[in-house]
Simulated scan of single mutants.
Amino acid sequence: MRYVMIIVGDETAWYEPKLPDGLMDEVGAWWGKWFEAGKLADGGAELQRTATAKTVGPGPDGRTTVTDGPFVELKEQVGGFIHLIADDIDDAVAVAATWPGIAAVGDRVEVRPVLER
C-alpha cells in the first residue's frame, strides 16, 4: 500500500538560525536506507516557508479569492511530504518513526494511507 508521511513542525527550527550540524547528512542517509529497502516511492518534496504560500478559497460573494500566506496561523506548519510503500500502517509508522527531524528539531510526522480509487 501507499502512504504519505507528512512532516509537521515549527518552521523557524528548519531555517533560523540554521539546521543542527549534520542533520542534512542524516536525512540523506535516511533517504538512502529506506529507498534501498523499497519503502520510498518516487516523489515527495520539502516545502518553502509558509510566507511564500497563497491560499485559494471561496470569498463572501461565492467567487474565488486568493490571499497571501497560509489560511490559518498555526504554531506548526507542514514542511514536506514523502510517499511511502509499506505492507500496512504499522510498517509505514515504523519507517516514519526513524525520521531524523523528530529528535533533531522536534518534528512530528503524520502517516496517512493514500486513497486508491
Rank of each mutant, 00 (worst) to 15 (best):
M1Y: 08
Y3N: 00
Y3A: 01
M5C: 07
G9F: 01
E11I: 05
T12Y: 11
W14G: 02
W14V: 13
Y15D: 14
L19N: 13
D21W: 01
L23Y: 00
D25M: 09
V27G: 00
A29R: 07
A29K: 09
A29Q: 08
W31H: 13
G38E: 06
K39W: 04
K39F: 06
L40Y: 04
D42K: 07
L47G: 04
L47E: 15
Q48E: 12
Q48N: 14
T50P: 05
T52G: 11
T52C: 14
G59D: 13
P60V: 15
P60F: 09
T64F: 11
V66W: 14
V66F: 06
V66H: 10
T67R: 04
T67N: 06
P70K: 00
P70Q: 01
K75F: 07
K75M: 05
Q77H: 12
Q77Y: 09
V78H: 02
F81R: 02
I82F: 05
H83D: 13
H83E: 13
A86F: 01
D88Y: 14
I89L: 10
I89Q: 00
D90K: 08
D91Y: 04
A92R: 02
A92S: 03
V93W: 04
V93T: 12
A96F: 00
A96G: 00
A97E: 14
W99A: 00
G101F: 00
I102T: 07
I102E: 05
A104I: 07
A104E: 04
D107R: 12
D107Y: 10
E110N: 13
R112C: 12
L115G: 14
L115A: 15
L115Y: 15
E116G: 15
R117V: 15
R117M: 15
